[in-house]
Design a protein around this nucleic acid. Structure first.
Lengths: 190, 190
DNA sequence: CTAATCATGTAAGGCGTTACATGATTTT
DNA sequence: AAAATCATGTAACGCCTTACATGATTAG
């Protein structure tokens, strides 16, 4: 009976305005998708559960396909449930950082190959940081850096994204440097 | 048939020396547990699968309880499988950052309550950073900052831990400051 | 005419969590 | 005498991923 994090995530999205399930799939990609993801197949059953709990209502209209198109809107009960959940300390979710697992066991692989991995990851994080910074600049221009702005949530989460990607990029570069031979391997010259 | 990340994590641990399943449960807690976790109930079936694949072998001895105590050791095939997997780019795992979900929907809750949440989290991250820094200092003293050291993997992952906790702490403090009233609410003095 | 977009669902299977179950040895 | 530690497993349930299934409208 209790609502999952995905349920609250969707509630948070619908608190900004009514949407279809299809809309939610798209809205969950950016920027929330950087922090929580869900497959399309999870959305529709979850919408059903939230509606059954009275946190959402929907209006059905004839849709493009064989089924009806349903537009969901949050109810007062839904808003209340969200407002109760938000200030609660987050439950600790299982960390899943595969690169750190590899790093822990780094001694078990070839150093040059591992260095290449960290260089690749460093570049990937740099690219992502640049992307996030651009989005952040756009939001700033739109005034979303002010807490009262309706998209301040987007701004704040993206700020975390930038900080994270930069930190990660630096760590990967540090790691690659550590794995660089102090004197590069050449033909033996005693 | 393919080996899960947990399987490789356990292989990485056993690459350092033979252990029982019980040992692995403990070893998975620190520092790997900061980046990947598993329940005890996952360990034993996984050990069975790895042994069946020929990546591990075990010696059985009479144990304290009703069952035999099995000590697992990595095989050459196991070492080879690990060495192949390590330099591969990590698969992207579903992000699960509940605090960012809450942040995205921050407008839906009372600002003072949310500020209290971010302050609590800021303190928690500061404590964790201090803990990690102490562990890191101990490893440094033991010489684990050198890539050839057998516990360099511990050192490198902890370094990420410190950077992460500091970054996170700063962000939480920033967020709390943002939610602080520019002029605190008093009795109206028009 | 073909492909993409809009739109909603179901089914099978894997992974992970919580809880249950047993029992000897060592520490308090 | 009680509690913690050592030690290995099973069962039920839920969440998530992958894949399947349908079909109208719009864009190229």
């Amino acid at each position: 009976m209790s609502i999952s994090v995905l349920g609250y995530t969707m509630l948070g999205l619908l608190a900004r305005g009514p949407h279809t399930g299809y809309d939610l799939v798209r809205l969950l990609r950016r920027p929330i998708g950087y922090y929580w993801t869900a497959q399309q197949s999870q959305i529709y059953p979850q919408l059903g559960r939230l509606a059954q709990a009275g946190l959402l209502v929907f209006e059905a209209a004839s849709g493009p396909g064989p089924r009806e198109k349903k537009t969901y809107a949050i109810t007062d009960e839904g808003r209340a449930a969200l407002a109760t959940w938000l200030p609660l300390p987050p439950g600790s979710h299982a960390p899943r950082d595969e690169l750190m697992v590899k790093t822990f066991a780094v001694a078990g692989a070839d150093a040059d190959q591992m260095r290449a991995l960290y260089l690749t990851m460093s570049d990937a994080h740099a690219d992502r940081a640049a992307d996030f910074e651009e989005q952040l600049a756009n939001l700033h221009r739109a005034g979303a850096h002010v807490p009262d702005h309706p998209r301040f949530g987007n701004y704040a989460t993206l700020r975390m994204g930038v900080a994270y990607e930069r930190m990660r990029q630096e760590w990967c570069a540090w790691m690659a440097a550590k794995l660089t031979h102090p004197s590069p391997p050449r033909s033996a010259r005693s």
